[in-house]
Each structure stands twice: as C-alpha cells, then as structure tokens.
Amino acid sequence: MSSVDTVRPVAEPTFEGSATTVQPTPRREWVFESTGSSARDEEPFAGARGMGGSTEKPPPNLDGPIRLRAIVRALFRAAHDETFHDGMESAFSRGVCLLVETEGTAAVEVIGELMTESPRHSEAASEALRWLGWVEDRPTYAARLWLIEKSLQHPSPRVRDAAGIGISAMADPHAIPPLKAAIARETVAELRDDLKQVLSEIEGLDSCPT
C-alpha cells in the first residue's frame, strides 16, 4: 500500500495537485497529512504521518531545519506515487518550486541532502533539478546553480541528465567548467552527447556580443 501525503498549512497561496498539496502561510507554518503509511517511510518524524484524517497523535513540534527536512522528505515520499511528464508541472514540482520561493536557500540545501540520501529518490531528484533551473527566484539563484552543478556528479545517470537540463535552463556561463568536467568523466554516451549540446549552447550565449 502506498501513502498519499499532504503537506499543508492553512493560508493562500494554494497549489493543489493529485497527490501532494503544499500551501504556505504568511508565518510559514506547515502541517503534515497523510492517508496512510508504507514500509518505505523511515524518517524520524513518522509521527507526523497518520495525522490529517485521523487524529491519533498530536502534531510534533518541528522547528527550523528539522521541520524543513521533514517537509522536503514528505514531498519526496509523495513523489513516488507520481509519474512525471516532460514539460508538465506535477504536484511535486509545484511543491519544490513553492518551497524554494518561500523557504529560500535552506530549502535548496535540504533538497540537495535528500537527493543523495537514497537511490530510491532518483526520479524525484531528477524532477526537482529540472524545475530548480526554471524557478524565477533571484535570492536562491546561487544555491540552485551550485546544487545543479554538484548533481552532475550524482551516481544516477538520470539525475546527471536532469542536472544538464537544469543548467541548460539557467544558461549561466559559470557552469561551463563543471560541465566540461562532467563531459570528461561521463560514461553514458547519449548523456555525454546531451551535455556537450548544453555546453555548446551556453558557450554560444557566452560569446554573443552584448
């Protein structure tokens, strides 16, 4: 049985999806809800699950980075129940973008931590990277670019491909050295070609007269 998780505080703005809902409040309070639990849920805040519909346990007091980590973990867990389609938003991508916009650099850092935590997160990590490149949020720009560049070294080719797509979206010449390094060590031929294509496009932009 899979769990369908909801991370939901109380106020606008609201972004709703089929499996996951993420809503921030002005005070950035977040509530966890879930319709069930599964064997793969092993985070230390398992008590946060099973709330929502049932009221078996009171909500835990989650503060600061620990609270943020639990939110991101719930997002990643819910992503297991989604199928992602290129170029189309998902409940997960909306949640990731909203978290970054509301929680800032700290959210990017926690997303980065979870991406490397388990191979199980590869699909969600890949989806997160694809959208992190598109987020229109100046304050987190450097952190997002750093995470995307770092993900070029991820063990999963799927995640490395998404990192290339994220870099393509950001089109930042600062990514050229890590991109060149990634091309040099890439073992998947198709991925290496795609990274070369991204590199040539960014170098082309970089050499354009302004």
């Binding site: 992602f84 290129d86 890949s126 080719p157 799927r158 491909d161 998404a162 073992t187 998947v188 031929a189 198709e190 991925l191 795609d194």
Partner: peptide
C-alpha cells in the same frame, strides 16, 4: 513515442 531519454539509457 515521446519518452524521457534517461529512462532508456542502455548503459544504465
């Protein structure tokens, strides 16, 4: 058929 290329990497 539209697809996600990284799901079909033979090396992966």
């Amino acid at each position: 058929r539209s697809s996600r290329r990284s799901r079909w990497y033979p090396e992966a």
